[in-house]
Amino acid sequence: MDLATLLQVLDSTVRLATPLLLACLAGLFSERSGIFDIGLEGKMLAAAFFSGAIAAVTGSVWLGLLAGIAASMVLSGIHGLASITFRGNQLISGVAINFLAAGLTVVIAQAWFQQGGRTPSLIGGARFAPITQPFAETLKNVPVLGPVYYQLFSGHSILVYLAFLMVPATWWVLLRSRFGLRLRAVGEAPEAVDTAGVSVIGTRYAAVAICGVLCGVAGSYLATGLQAGFVKDMSAGRGYIALAALIFSKWRPWHALGATMLFGFLQALALRPDIIETALRVPIPVQLLDALPYILTVVILAGFVGRATPPRAGGSPYVKER
């Protein structure tokens, strides 16, 4: 494989890993606070639709992004209501949210745009344009480093850079700030946090809200960055891959970056089966590449490669002592 092909694959790795990374960090906030969230998929899908729809109608991608975040947060609110206030089953709530998004996006899209469950194609200011980093054009001809800088680091939309910045931000908030300490404590031993006079319910709602914002950005990126407009079921299982990455990273921010990059790389390879065939000299079925993130997650879950221990209070509602 020559440098040009490698760079092409890595470039699409970055693009494809971005929504996974954002959704994975979203899940990280929620699950570290003790709220399991298998509804990442639905929140991304809802955000993708509303960002695409509003961007198409107003012509402004920023309004689209806001709409996407709002839609995702509404679903987060439902999840919070069900799993925090009404102490319902968090898994069932997540399943319901995924279906709600899958159904409502198509029903509304059809009623709104009459294009078979999609939004009109986004053009111009209704999409996030690639940003050319300083000196990328001038340095393009420097051997090796020039093309790497030009193709890999430059030329992505702002949401891609935001996603990567979110990794250190998440690390700092979760592991270095007072809020993060409380959030993690709520996920491990809510009764201790309650005794210390911190609201378990408030902290969990905050975590679920952050999860909603990040999923909203992830979904908006799908419709306004990665592609130009919403199509039916466009999240295509990315929420579940993000969930897999979350377990793969054992609920840690920097590892989440590694896991999502790996899964993004697999997705990028699945788009170019010819590259693997020439590199390995044996045909690898595309279906195997598609399934690999899931298989790897099962292997990790099985504990063959280190144990993945979820937050202790995850999945169980908190009932205050009387």
């Binding site: 439902i78 209501l81 069900a82 799993s83 009404f86 102490r87 319902g88 089953n89 968090q90 069932i92 709530s93 399943v95 319901a96 949210i97 995924n98 279906f99 709600l100 899958a102 159904g103 409502l104 198509v106 029903v107 059809q110 009623a111 469950g117």
Partner: peptide, 28 residues
């Protein structure tokens, strides 16, 4: 009618939500 089939998915989601996750909202 001009109602897409996905409406069923919405109804299904609402049934799961209210009979499953939000059970306590009705029960309490």
């Amino acid at each position: 009618m001009s109602i897409p089939r996905e409406l069923i998915v919405v109804i299904q989601a609402l049934v799961i939500l209210f009979t499953g996750a939000l059970d306590n909202m009705v029960r309490m």
